[in-house]
Nucleic acid binder design. Structure first.
Lengths: 201, 201
DNA sequence: CAGGGGTGTTAATGATCGTTAACCGACTCT
DNA sequence: AGAGTCGGTTAACGATCATTAACACCCCTG
């Protein structure tokens, strides 16, 4: 035994099956909710029936865990990357909006699951995901405060949640074509953020 | 038997127990999801244990059904009322925003359940709720088009979903105090709607 | 060709949980 | 006092469903 062989190999080229299963599961979870989907349903969706999935995942909860930690990490890293490569604070903010809009439009099923089934996670996974979320929001809050000096932190945090809610509304929406939807959401998000929330009426 | 005595008496002054149960159930559903809450949990939350609830509701699904049709009707009727009592189209829109913000802040648990557990409903309830939702959105779409002439209907519908998403983000948000939150959400919603989504860049 | 890892299959197992049964005290109305 | 309804209790019942057992291939390497 060369220590533990199949634990967490980050340099591993992802095969296909796991991801195929996760994709199908995401669609199903998005439509029916985590508890509304049986292990057999997921199996059927990828052409195998029932407990075959246990060859690929330790449990049903593990699927959800991997799915949600995956999306949360992608969001956080993407956000950080956008911030890093931006010149002005205003540009950074715009970049974040663009990133999140694109992400939400591309991964609407994951967004839905993320909003909906977070607390079907096991304790440790839930904490991990919440921590990643928190850090992602923090990226937004910092960017927002830099771009709108004088904005206090609690307000910035609330405004961030609101804008993310706006963008994440995408799964509920009767979709326009992707490019129209992208510009619409982008414009509305910036409009919401431009509403000078720092000044009194 | 004087026909059916306890069916649908709309003129009835609501007692207390059903509503108490619905309130507790709403909080629990919001926190743990419909399937994540047992009948015993709901009972415990109101001080009785277990199947006592069946003296008040036909089933667990019936609770969810009543909860969600209730909220949907309140939203629709409130929306219609605001529209009716408004002078200018701009004022009507503003009135809708105010109404929804207030509602979401006052009933954040219901909003959460509404977004999350819609498809745990029985077929007929689900259709009823979706129909009410559709009509509520229609109220917004009409108001929006009147206030922003030249806006095409699909875009107006998408914009409506986005604004509702913004306002409904309230449950996820680290709440400011209610009045600050109200003005912030109101301002951001109007800002999003003012972002002249009809013009090209 | 022996054999072992990876991937499926179907049939038990066991827990959870909504729902019902059977039973009971309290309060009202006559 | 007595009958009935209302709201509650605890103990079965039954279904659903994740998980595991036991068994069967395929394929690749030695």
């Amino acid at each position: 035994m060369t220590h533990n062989a199949a634990e967490d190999p980050p340099t591993e080229p992802p095969p296909t099956r796991r991801e195929q299963i996760l994709g199908a599961a995401a669609e199903l979870f998005a439509r029916y909710g985590f508890h509304g989907v049986g292990i057999d349903d997921i199996g059927a969706a990828v052409g195998v029936s029932g407990p075959a999935l246990y060859r690929h995942f330790r449990s049903k909860d593990a699927m959800l865990g991997e799915m949600l930690t995956g999306i949360s990490e992608k969001l956080l890293h993407g956000g950080n990357a956008r911030i890093a490569g931006a010149g002005t604070p205003e540009h950074a903010l715009e970049s974040l909006v663009h990133w999140h809009v694109e992400f939400a439009l591309t991964n609407s099923a994951l967004i839905t699951v993320h909003l909906r089934d977070l607390d079907s996670l096991s304790e440790p996974d839930r904490h991990r995901v919440r921590e990643l979320q928190r850090r992602y929001v923090e990226v937004w809050v910092r960017a927002l405060i830099e771009a709108r000096p004088g904005l206090d932190e609690p307000t910035a945090r609330a405004a961030t949640h609101a804008v993310l809610g706006l963008i994440n509304s995408t799964p509920y929406s009767a979709r326009l074509d992707t490019t129209a939807m992208t510009t619409l959401l982008h414009r509305m998000a910036m409009g919401a953020l431009d509403s000078e929330p720092t000044r009194r009426a």
